[in-house]
């Protein structure tokens, strides 16, 4: 009787091939201060869920990290943690880091390698993906598994997050992805989870060719308003230059920029470059705080693509309120003063 069909159905040949196939999900983690970064923990939680769906292990990778960080990775879902060490890995340099990780990937053959979409992930992931001729999905908002094809489903933002697209690479392995920090839910830690922490030492890594010279103290040119993430906008309702100054301070504290309405421009509080609306700039910030802004249609057209709009105005019938995520009926100047005070008291 010909059993080839049955055998192939049961994966006879594939079983042998599976020995050399890519499997497991790796998480390249980051450590800050007392332990793993929150994004790393969340990534481990996600990796654990996906590994359960695939029936594989989660393995963590850390560069020059203490053993305690390895144990923390296990408590958040890793089964094995590799602590990569060696000359060149003491502080970040892309060539030795990429080389060490590439060698580890070559010997461990993971099917999925996950990074945080931080500067570290942004430097390493494209280099490794290019080295392995592998797909890379950047700034993912969510991850999933196509169980039929045993492939990663990556939800990536398009047009700056206006909508998302789900991408898949059915055939290429390993698959790389960077995940936007802060989008995955924080997982629970299980301090009794079992796993092993292995130190891997490299002794012949290439030297980094880029010298990191520490923080830059000089002033930077302000990015154009249209690309600012946070904007504090003043209208006539802030009353005077004192109110404008409060708004400027708030903008600085939130890492954003000051802008204004036509009214503010007429009062001479802002420059023409800072005018938002039909006559001025069109902006698309993540956060827009409108202080004493009535919300004339000319102004609203310039801020239509704002993610989060907060409006402060004394007039409860102000036109801006129907568009706002949070409308505050109060004196803009007084609220600005309180906001500044509260932000001074709470460390960021």
């Amino acid at each position: 009787m010909d059993l080839d069909f049955l055998q192939s159905l049961m994966g006879g040949e594939e079983m042998a091939a599976a020995e050399t196939a890519y499997q497991d999900i790796w998480v390249v983690g980051e450590v800050s201060g007392e332990g793993l970064t929150p994004a790393t923990r969340a990534l481990l939680g996600k990796a654990r869920d996906m590994a359960n769906a695939l029936g594989v292990y989660v393995k963590g990778v850390l560069f020059s990290a203490p053993e305690s960080a390895g144990s923390e990775m296990i408590s958040y879902g890793a089964d094995t943690v590799y602590l990569l060490e060696g000359a060149g890995l003491e502080s970040f340099a892309v060539e030795p880091y990429a080389e060490a990780l590439a060698r580890q990937i070559e010997s461990g053959r993971p099917e999925i390698v996950l990074f945080n979409a931080t500067s570290l992930g942004g430097e390493l992931a494209p280099r490794l993906a290019a080295r392995f001729r592998a797909p890379l999905f950047t700034h993912c908002m969510d991850l999933g598994i196509d169980e039929a094809q045993r492939a990663l489903l990556a939800t990536v933002p398009r047009l700056g997050g206006e909508y998302y697209e789900i991408l898949i690479s059915p055939s290429l392995r390993p698959q790389f992805a960077t995940v936007e920090p802060g989008v995955l839910p924080a997982p629970f830690a299980d301090p009794y989870r079992f796993g092993s922490v292995e130190r891997v030492t490299f002794d012949d890594l290439p030297a980094g060719r880029v010298e990191m010279l520490g923080p830059y103290a000089g002033g930077l040119p302000e990015p154009p308003l249209s690309r600012s993430r946070v904007i504090v906008c003043v209208g006539r309702g802030v009353q005077d230059t004192e109110g404008v100054e409060l708004a400027r301070r708030l903008a600085a504290k939130l890492g954003g920029q000051l802008a204004g309405t036509r009214g503010a421009l007429d009062e001479g509080w802002i420059s023409e470059e800072q005018l938002v609306g039909m006559a001025g700039r069109t902006v698309r910030p993540a956060l827009y705080i409108a202080c004493g802004v009535a919300g004339a249609i000319q102004h609203m057209l310039g801020i239509a693509k704002t993610e989060c709009l907060i409006a402060i105005n004394t007039d409860p019938k102000a036109e801006i309120f129907p568009y706002a995520d949070l409308g505050v009926v109060a004196d803009a100047k007084a609220v600005l003063e309180e906001l500044n005070k509260k932000l001074d008291n709470t460390p960021a």
């Binding site: 494209p126 280099r127 290019a130 890379l136 398009r158 700056g160 960077t178």
Partner: peptide, 12 residues
């Protein structure tokens, strides 16, 4: 596309 990989790939 929000792509953030061409530069790193080119370097490699």
């Amino acid at each position: 596309t929000g792509g953030d990989q061409t530069a790193g790939r080119l370097a490699e």
